[in-house]
């Protein structure tokens, strides 16, 4: 049997804020405990991040604030340009071309057709002045569907899927509760059936009962649609519930990877041990 090809291959991804110098990567990282280069004072948000993601898999990324988790995903979703590194995405040119090096038009195409993103803060992912339906329409229109009837049918289907009452489809998300805004955001991210979805701290800032419902929903959708996801969280509970495999990050580097159960039961790296032992 031929070996399965990963959906996404990321190699040595780095994002440096500032001028950057040749010593940036060697003098930052978990060993030095900082991500600020002592020579040029650039911030090394993440560096040398490599991993494979297979179709249907959910990969968790954990780490403290400032460990580079969000930067990693922002680079992959083209919100922020990567300083170095390569990423090969099976859905784009059959994984033959480095998607981080393609043109802005191609990046836009990948973003709108092949990826979905749910941000921690719904204000980032939604246009609060557009209706809930309009927000979903934006993604569909960007993918070239110019038929109002079709757009509305798809939007209704997605809102039903994410348990947003249909009568609120033509209301502004500005007047929605946090949990409902988050569900609209999930609906938007799923609009084009993207092969890859990023979830960046989706439940942070929601109260516990709403958190549970959103997690439940994600789990359900994942089973139903066979989604491939990268889930970022500092909450190990969320990671345990959702993910199959996990990357642990500290000071912009991956310090440990493995199966979620394995990492949570038997952490090897001192930082992971600290993280697991401080779990409530």
């Amino acid at each position: 049997m031929p070996k399965e090809e990963p959906l996404l291959r990321v190699r040595r991804l780095a994002r440096i804020f500032g001028s950057g110098c040749s010593k940036c990567t060697s003098c930052t990282g978990p060993l030095t405990g900082t991500n600020i280069c002592s020579y040029c004072h650039s911030i090394v948000a993440c560096a040398g991040v490599s991993f494979d993601l297979y179709a249907g898999e959910i990969l968790g990324v954990v780490g403290e604030s400032g460990s580079g988790k969000s930067t990693l995903v922002q680079c992959l979703y083209f919100d922020s340009p990567a300083t170095a590194g390569e990423a090969y995405f099976k859905a784009y040119k059959d994984g033959q071309a480095n998607m981080l090096a393609c043109s802005v038009q191609e990046k836009r195409y990948i973003r709108h057709h092949l990826m979905g993103m749910v941000y921690q803060n719904p204000q980032q992912g939604l246009k609060l002045d557009f209706t809930a339906g309009g927000n979903i329409a934006e993604k569909l229109l960007a993918a070239g569907i110019y038929h109002v009837g079709q757009i509305r049918r798809r939007a209704a289907e997605l809102l039903q899927c994410t348990e947003v009452p249909l009568e609120r489809m033509d209301h502004l998300p500005r007047f929605f509760s946090g949990g409902m805004q988050q569900r609209v955001q999930i609906a938007k991210a799923l609009a084009n059936n993207p092969p890859l979805v990023f979830l960046d701290e989706v439940t942070t800032g929601l109260d516990v009962s709403v958190q549970a419902r959103v997690l439940d929903l994600i789990k359900k959708l994942q089973r139903k649609l066979g989604l491939t996801m990268i889930v970022i969280s500092h909450d190990l509970g969320v990671i345990r519930l959702l993910t199959n495999r996990v990357l642990v990050m500290k000071s912009g580097r991956v310090v440990e990877t493995g199966l979620t159960d394995q990492i949570l039961e038997d952490p090897q790296h001192p930082y992971t041990q600290l993280l697991v032992s401080s779990m409530l």
Partner: peptide, 19 residues
Amino acid sequence: HAEADYSRLWVYLYEDIVR
């Protein structure tokens, strides 16, 4: 314009029709 990203204008037209 450079990226030919006109989806927001399209959403404006969509919302006009909805309203």
